[in-house]
Design a protein around this nucleic acid. Sequence first.
DNA 1: AGAAATTAACTGGTCACTCAGTCAGTATTT
DNA 2: AAATACTGACTGAGTGACCAGTTAATTTCT
Lengths: 223, 223
Amino acid sequence: MGQKNAKTVGVESLSSAKESRFDAILDSAETVFARSGYEGATMREIAERAGVAQGLIHYHFKTKEVLFEAMVSRRSQQINEGRAALLDGILKQDQTPDLEPIVEALFRPTIEAGISQASDGGAFAKILVSTANSASEREQLLTQKYYDPIAQKFISAFMQVEPGLTRANAVWAYMFAIGVGMTMMAKTGRPARLSDGLCDDGDADEMLTKIVPFICSGIRALT
Amino acid sequence: MGQKNAKTVGVESLSSAKESRFDAILDSAETVFARSGYEGATMREIAERAGVAQGLIHYHFKTKEVLFEAMVSRRSQQINEGRAALLDGILKQDQTPDLEPIVEALFRPTIEAGISQASDGGAFAKILVSTANSASEREQLLTQKYYDPIAQKFISAFMQVEPGLTRANAVWAYMFAIGVGMTMMAKTGRPARLSDGLCDDGDADEMLTKIVPFICSGIRALT
DNA sequence: AGAAATTAACTGGTCACTCAGTCAGTATTT
DNA sequence: AAATACTGACTGAGTGACCAGTTAATTTCT
């Protein structure tokens, strides 16, 4: 269900290229799930924000759970294609690549997926954070399905450019790197609070200049 | 509300020292909130698991929100007293202390609060993770109230033992350190999945031997 | 080409159920 | 007896899901 809406693909996101209701529902779901969490979000609110009848959501997605997965699937495929492309480009070099661009390739597509939608305050990034940290069945399965494969690619890349890493340590390195990245994606505003405004977790580019050296140095400590 | 139950404090947690219903409710809330999240948890389930009538929860805590805060408050005070004690002990030395024990002091009390209850699978740690990462009003206020003060102490300690750190970078260092710690506290089982069983996020002590060098090296990269 | 038939997209209302919270009344303590 | 602790039945406000029926778009038949 949902693949029949492959119509009018072409160049979307162009100005206000009229979007299908199907996609409008997914966009709305992204915003509402991000603000209220899975249980806190209501089908009614998602429908209202998308400007459709509530029944239409059930027509397209059957259940709330399927809707949630469809929303995660759409965005994570986009992100992980970007990640894979960047990583492949780096590894295709002649000499051994640096660790730094690899770590950057891990985060930049997520950031860009956040801002492209503008005005949503990085809604999907927030969903990512809570999904990744959840120990619940449903969310773990989504992580496994959509994020474990690309994770393995980055873990292998870590081992390739830092030969001192055991496989176990490369896995820890990946987990820790993601943990640090959460700080940026959660957008809690806490850095600003703790620093009297010196730090701003809304500025992803500035954060990356701190995060990348932090993680790379941390990884090298595990070699 | 709740402080009138300071009765029979003494040595609790001893075998099955009969616990007050008040505390039984908080314990139950910890487990249920950890598994289902704030919205997903129901007062009915918390009451059943605690073996009391649902009305009793409202008698003691009035609302779900107050119950949640009471549960966070109890455990976080215990954790942060442990953290402060360890940190003060370290800073009281004559010569300049190392960064390593400070970072360890950040995490050990949380871990121990998790295991002491046994069998709950680190329920409170999971709540901590989702609370810290949430951008919602309610959870941000709790973080601010119960965790920002101790965070400032650790940020100052970072600057004291690593004089090259600016205040802004010390704040980032703290945020990143917490981010890495999430990996350990969330207990998602993902490390085991990604490593075919080589890594185990259930073994907090083993994780600490990886986390502490990772974070310390990362922090020093910011100097 | 144009009418007829079929499918897809969509609506508004409704259902059975669950939720947090209330309350009158009962047991237990002091 | 007076206060505190506690119960269990209850309520009104939502909840996700469902469905009969309407409109728009395609396909099929003549």
